[in-house]
Design a protein around this nucleic acid. Structure first.
Length: 481
RNA sequence: GGCCCCGUCGCCAAGUGGUAAGGCAGAGGUCUGCAACACCUUUAUCAGCAGUUCGAAUCUGCUCGGGGCCUCCA
């Protein structure tokens, strides 16, 4: 079975066949760097991180481009408010973005271009569009004339009459048509600007992506991604610009991720229901966020809430507990892992799920099946005396780690991860680790003396405080309720 | 006003024509001094109504409910 992807352009799942066999070019719209990233940005970037990883895992030599928009109205405004240059502001938030993506465990794209590094290319494309009669200059601005591009709105599947009927489009002063959009904006005082054939100015938003993508991937490439909200106008305009200039099909497959909602509504600053990655990371482990995001299909909306994050944490904990148990049961020593039926089965199902438009939710469900099988084997009587069972557990363990890598999960040492989550949770309780350990000692003493009621009392008290005790042959450990 | 999406077990969530994955929570059991952990078993006919079909959660129509885009937005 081969990879199938949902293409926004056709509205269907299509068989994935790159323009050049074995190679993939992928461009994803990055962020405008004027503020900290929120959980919605985290989703978009994690989704395409996983797509990138899976393409490579599937054997495609993939060039992944994700840009920084470092010149824009919002950057200029914010910089003015703070009395710094827009360059300084952009630098600051590029750094913050990199830190956030790093802590979320994203791999680096092949290229991370900045819009300001491609001004020449932007001017070049703009000039070409003017030469072709598709764009026009007006007092230092340059606009794209949408009625010169018959395919306009083919991605968002709207029509011009309906758009105009919306009556919320206000004609720009220099525009010939209210639907036209700016390729180049004449400089205003105090704004960053570059020299151009039309005077000092700066690029419009949409043209940046056309310039960066064609520079790094060519006039025609395989995958273009971004959030749903970019379909119109951003991606529509990119198509108009790139295809208008090159005369070639810009992109073969358009992929768009769904939103992160809060209380069933889109997250937005005006509603105040806004969570930055940094804030969330204070309470939740980065991998929990990734797990939460990947437990739904990338095109569906997901609802961000404490309950959902807590559930994601429970789910991920199940993996780490099983991985830890497997390491203990097999002594965790490094050995050549034999492929067994169990491991092969999990891998096959995982691939099938991912091949079906990157169905990470289903893929994770198959990994859960692997966990259950592993736990069951370990719980078998006389497990340690059955080499064939040990081999299966070792293989499942290795398989889960290997496939986990593909979606960026289970990258930590189980013991370390479990300990970390435990301590973060403990910090929210009234009791300290030392106190717990002291009580465990007292209970052990009581149990030695067969004073079970005292022992139970301690255990019940701890449970009331949110601490569960686990008795094993090796001794008593504790975990959070 | 135009375009579009969604409504699956208490909660989260796969499944787009062949008879409902998985996780969390719950119940019963095995294990245990008693528990916990782990394991085993167990819990839905898919918002409603009407159609198409041998057969529908999956297709069509209508109704109800929720959301998105049409302006910057992941």
């Amino acid at each position: 079975m081969s990879l199938r992807v949902y293409n926004t352009m056709s509205g269907k799942k299509e068989e994935f066949q790159p323009l050049v066999p074995g190679k993939v070019g992928m461009y994803v719209c990055g962020v405008t760097v004027y503020d900290y990233c929120h959980i919605g940005h985290a989703r978009a970037n994690i989704v395409f991180d996983v797509i990138f990883r899976y393409l490579q895992f599937s054997g495609y030599e993939t060039t992944y481009v994700r840009n920084y928009t470092d010149v824009d109205d919002k950057i200029i405004n914010r910089a003015n408010e703070r009395g710094i240059s827009s360059q300084e502001l952009a630098e600051e938030f590029i750094k913050a973005f990199d830190e956030d993506m790093d802590s979320l465990g994203l791999v680096k794209p092949t290229h991370e271009p900045r819009a300001t590094e491609y001004i020449q290319k932007i001017i070049e494309i703009t000039q070409k569009l003017i030469d072709k009669g598709i764009a026009y200059e007006a007092s230092g601005d340059v606009y794209y004339s949408v009625d010169k591009f018959p395919d306009y709105l083919k991605l968002s599947k709207r029509n011009m009459e309906d758009m105009l009927a919306g009556a919320r489009v206000t004609p720009g002063e220099q525009k010939r048509d209210p639907m036209d959009f700016a390729l180049w904006k004449a400089a205003k005082p105090g704004e960053p600007s570059w020299k151009s054939p039309w005077g000092e100015g700066r690029p419009g938003w949409h043209i940046e992506c056309s310039a960066m993508s064609s520079s790094l991937l060519g006039d025609s490439f395989d995958i273009h991604g971004g959030g749903r909200d970019l379909i119109f106008p951003h991606h529509e305009n990119e198509i108009a610009q790139s295809e208008g200039a090159s005369g070639q099909t810009f992109v073969k497959y358009w992929l768009h991720n769904g939103f992160v909602n809060v209380n069933q509504e889109k997250m937005s600053k005006s509603l105040g229901n806004f969570f930055t990655i940094r804030d969330i990371l204070k309470t939740y482990d980065a991998e929990v966020i990734r797990f939460f995001i990947l437990s739904a299909h990338y095109r569906s909306p997901i609802d961000f809430s404490d309950q959902n994050l807590a559930e994601a944490q429970s789910g991920l904990k199940r993996f780490y507990e099983a991985l830890e148990a497997a390491e203990i049961a097999t002594d965790g020593t490094e050995k050549k892992v034999q492929r067994t039926d169990e491991g092969a089965k999990v891998e096959k199902k995982f691939r099938e799920a991912m091949d079906d438009d990157f169905n990470t939710a289903l893929a994770i469900a198959h990994l859960f099946d692997g966990v259950r099988t592993m736990n069951r084997l370990i719980a078998t009587k006389k497990f340690k005396k059955k080499p064939e069972l040990i081999a299966q557990v070792e293989d499942l363990h290795a398989t889960i780690l290997q496939l986990g890598e593909v979606i960026g999960l289970y990258r930590s040492q189980p013991t370390t991860w479990l300990e970390k989550v435990k301590l973060v949770g403990l910090a929210q309780l009234e009791i300290t680790q030392g106190e717990i350990e002291e009580l465990i000692k007292q209970r052990l003493q009581a149990r030695k003396e067969k004073d079970f009621s005292r022992g139970d009392e301690i255990r019940n008290d701890l449970e009331a405080q949110g601490i569960l005790l686990l008795d094993t042959r090796e001794g008593t450990s504790w975990r959070l309720k």
